[in-house]
Amino acid sequence: METTFLGRKRKRLEAAHADIGGHSAGGSHDEHHDHESLKTFGFWIFLITDCILFGTLFATYIVLRGNTNGGPTAEELFQMPGVIASTFILLTSSFTSGLAVLSMNRGNVKGLIGWLAVTALLGASFITLEITEFVHMVQAENATIGTSAFLSAFYTLVGTHGLHVSLGLVWMVALMIQLARHGITAVTKRKVNVISLYWHFLDVVWIFVFTIVYMMGVM
């Protein structure tokens, strides 16, 4: 049952890929190019709406950050060495995802998958650092999401960013498998461009988390 479903899905995918190859060979390549760039633009609009989501969480955090309810304050809680390390890790991963796109534009599949793997590893270390920080805060400092309005807003904002990064990791692994199977086609090319945009966007959000939550917290 499952194999027939997978088989059917695979056949459809192969047909789609063959279709793209055939058309670009036939000369009506522009039509497909337009279709793929339209999808990239659709993803850009999603990123803008995601900006608004983070905007509301930032607004909530800024309004509530003084309301500690007798619990620990930002200055007591934040440990900057880990935060600084994760900032540089995410910054580097934004750079390596750009290098993945460069490899793709040169037609280098191995380089593309390699740089995506480096990006995913850096993303995984970022998430590991974040989870370690959260566990330390809950266990050692007794600072849970229910302790104060400040901590509710903090965990929601930073946790939402962390969830985005985790989702990006799963997506990146799936894309690496697709690339290993199909190589660089019009479809996988668009997907790599889109995930690279997503990754840069997450880095941008982190810059503001780092500035508004952590730096202004310990200032």
Binding site: I52, F54, G55, A59
Partner: peptide, 22 residues
């Protein structure tokens, strides 16, 4: 430049939400 236009539109909304809330 549709990408730039949607970005500016989004930023206007984000700034309104953040500045208005504060």
């Amino acid at each position: 430049r549709y990408n730039l236009m949607t970005l500016i539109f989004g930023l206007v909304i984000v700034l309104t939400i953040v500045a208005g809330s504060i």
